[in-house]
Design a protein around this nucleic acid. Structure first.
Lengths: 226, 226
DNA sequence: ATAAATTATTAGGTTTACCTAAATTTTTAT
DNA sequence: ATAAAAATTTAGGTAAACCTAATAATTTAT
């Protein structure tokens, strides 16, 4: 007769922060994630990063090649996605339930993402109605780490020159919807960012060969797929 | 013209755990809280406790007399009450919103109580409807650290021989309320615990000179003031 | 009142996660 | 191709929060 003892996989907050940072940097550039990139993102010195990368490699969370950066292993990716899932679910909770603005949730979500409780995560997801996107429009991984297909962004997050297709609206007040109707903006509308004013972040967008000015308030409330 | 720079008061999770433990032990016994008491409660060795008590004393959170234990200062008490407030609000949230049973919330609340965000605490309190008692019937300190006057307990938390006055019910299903009516238990009913069966935690209570048997399920759902 | 038992403190050690400074490797530029 | 610049790693150090073992103070029991 055999007795199996399960060691719960537990990582420190710091290890989780590194995994998440590697995950995000991996999205941006291909190839290994550099020590300096992590050092900058995590606001620690390069020497500290090197030390941690060796530890993560020892735990089989990353593949680490001296001087050539790291990449998440499957195991590392799985855990990184759980942290991202928790982070985005909490952001959704803070905005939807606790009257936070979508630009003041990050710091608190950074703390909440480390709370360990599988039941908590699943029940929170259920309570919130299994949202697909967080308040920034970023996709929320599901229980198995799967991301919804086409992540929506806010129009205000596009850069000058980028194009997008209108996918939804955050403010559903009739005054906002009337405003959209007047500008002939609806679901499926194609648009291109022509210009962004730096002083008030208002935009000029090209829709159907017409130049339309939109305030930051408006562009924050329009979701696009790019 | 003067410029004030505010240093946010920040304590480590460990320091907060010590403050909370001292707070709880202080309620139970008068005089200084002992090193061994804390050592047992926090599951750390006495030597570690001594070390931390010196640190907390240095931060003016406790009054510490070598060999004679500690007591919270006003500053220490204030912060301990904030931790207790957060712990109990989160317990309430877990039970009311996330389908946790009241006996499975503690471990998660132990983690959530360390999340730092004044806005989060106040908004959570508001979202939950400013509850006065947590799911165990323990009082929730308000923003200023004030505890509601007469904390309610569950009937199941009384010891043999203790008396209480019925103050409310958790299960408000008609079947439970009908059961209560049949036993002539209502708000304001005086009762005394005559006996507790150790095998199923059922009780015999004396109400109005009648001996009434109550299951653990029933006594869990009856709130009393003692 | 003093010895025994209990409790608390000190001394010295560990791990995590940072740091600086020095050394080494890789990359870039002439 | 090689020197300078940039990036990375190594070496050695710190503070927090734990530990064990040894010592000291207090309490209890005879």
């Amino acid at each position: 007769m055999y007795i199996y003892i399960l060691f719960e996989i537990m990582f420190t907050q710091s290890e989780e922060n590194y995994l998440k940072a590697i995950f995000h940097l991996q999205q941006e550039v291909e190839g290994g994630v550099s020590t300096s990139g992590l050092s900058e993102k995590l606001k620690t010195k390069a020497a500290s990063v090197t030390e941690m990368l060796k530890r993560l490699a020892g735990k089989k969370l990353v593949d680490y090649q001296k001087y050539y950066g790291v990449q998440l292993t499957d195991k590392g990716m799985q855990h990184a996605l759980l942290i991202v899932r928790k982070h985005r679910l909490w952001e959704y909770f803070l905005v939807e339930c606790l009257n936070f603005n979508w630009d003041e949730v990050h710091e608190v979500a950074e703390q909440l993402e480390h709370i360990r409780s599988p039941k908590l995560v699943e029940e929170l997801d259920l309570f919130l109605g299994r949202p697909q996107y967080d308040p920034h429009g970023d996709p929320i991984p599901d229980t198995n780490g799967k991301l919804p297909k086409s992540p929506n962004k806010r129009l205000s997050q596009l850069q000058k020159g980028e194009r997008g297709i209108c996918k939804g609206f955050n403010d559903t007040s009739s005054s906002f919807l009337q405003f959209l109707a007047k500008q002939e903006i609806g679901l499926g509308t194609n648009l291109e960012v022509l210009n962004i004013e730096s002083f008030d972040e208002s935009m000029t967008v090209l829709i159907d060969k017409k130049e339309i000015p939109l305030s930051k308030t408006a562009t924050d409330n329009i979701y696009v797929e790019d």
